[in-house]
């Protein structure tokens, strides 16, 4: 333990003392609205690791503050706005969905939006050979609605359910009649797919690709606007018959509502510079993240658009 301790201390020291020429920000305190080991935790720690490793950031500290599905951390950031200018909070698509559901007393526009940094597309997957295309699945469903159960890793009405319903709707099936079975982890949902409990699984592309490589699933379509390099054979949902479907589950950073503009710009410039570094590439590749740099006003516009699209969809499905 002593060895590890000194190692840790040494690592901190080097991170702090190597003031390389291109250091852009002295220190950032990453506020993580969920517990250790989750997606937010990985994003914040990975980003911090890449930034300090590349010398763009002097030192990074991390604080996990869970509670209220992220609401506690947002509240903390708003209440202590003036003393938290060196803080960046990680968040993702659910902040939009939960605000729409009215379970958050806050909205993303209550915070300073720094940038969207990484994303993941939605994917519909099936066991190999069960359906060869999205239209097959829709046909099977139309013939016998009770033959299809859809699963996902979110609660009913949550993100995976929404993505699945969005695709099925656009492909001409009545999504409100499809049975949706929620699972609490991606792995258990996959087991349910392989065991035949569900016929189609709505999941993230990153997870789906790993399973496809292992030869366990076929990906019917992905919710991107163009085919992606990692899987050139997989059609987008638009191509597969669900016209106009586009959805990206972003992750990005927010800061205190009273953050001065020049500081926000400094953070954005630092994150922008991060993508060029080998340290970031190592972290990104390890986690299978898709880059979507979306700073400042673009981020605001993107979020407002997403809020509107999701809001309309949820209302039309009766999810709100």
């Amino acid at each position: 333990m002593l060895k590890k301790l000194t190692l840790g201390a040494a690592a901190l020291m080097t991170a702090a003392s190597v003031a390389s020429a291109d250091q852009m920000v002295d220190s950032v305190h990453f506020l993580i609205p969920g517990g250790a080991g989750g997606g937010w935790d990985g994003t914040a720690r990975g980003t911090g690791e890449a930034l300090t490793g590349a010398g763009l950031l002097g030192s990074a500290s991390f604080e996990n503050m869970s509670g209220g599905g992220g609401g506690v951390a947002i509240g903390h950031l708003i209440e202590n706005a003036d003393s938290m200018h060196d803080t960046m909070m990680v968040n993702s698509t659910p902040i939009v969905i939960r605000s729409l559901q009215g379970v958050f007393p806050y909205n993303f526009s209550d915070l300073t939006m720094i940038a969207g940094t990484i994303g993941d597309y939605g994917a519909l997957v099936v066991t190999p050979g069960s359906s060869t295309s999205l239209s097959d699945l829709v046909a099977a469903y139309s013939a016998d609605p009770s033959s299809i159960a859809m699963g996902g890793g979110s609660v009913p009405g949550g993100m995976d359910h929404l993505i699945g319903a969005m695709v099925m709707n656009a492909a001409g099936a009545d999504a409100t009649q499809i049975a949706y079975l929620p699972f609490d982890a991606g792995g258990v949902a996959l087991a349910a797919l392989l065991s035949g409990e569900i016929e189609v699984l709505s999941t993230g592309l990153g997870e789906a690709l790993a399973q496809q490589k292992a030869g366990e699933v076929d990906i019917l379509c992905i919710t991107s606007d163009a085919r992606i390099a990692d899987a050139p054979d997989v059609p987008t949902c638009s191509e597969a018959g669900a016209d106009g479907v586009y959805f990206v589950n972003w992750r990005g950073f927010f800061s205190s509502p009273s953050l001065p503009d020049e500081k926000a710009e400094a953070y954005r410039a630092m994150l922008g510079a991060m993508y060029e570094t080998p340290e970031w590439e190592a972290v990104r590749a390890r986690n299978g993240w898709v880059e979507i740099f979306n700073p400042g006003d673009d981020f605001v516009a993107f979020l407002e658009n997403q809020e509107q699209v999701i809001g309309e969809l949820m209302t039309s499905l009766g999810f709100l």
């Binding site: 333990m1 301790l5 840790g8 201390a9 305190h29 250790a36 500290s61 604080e63």
Partner: peptide
């Protein structure tokens, strides 16, 4: 505190 800060790297 030492354990949390240096080994677990939490604040």
């Amino acid at each position: 505190w030492l354990l949390v800060t240096y080994v677990l790297q939490r604040t």
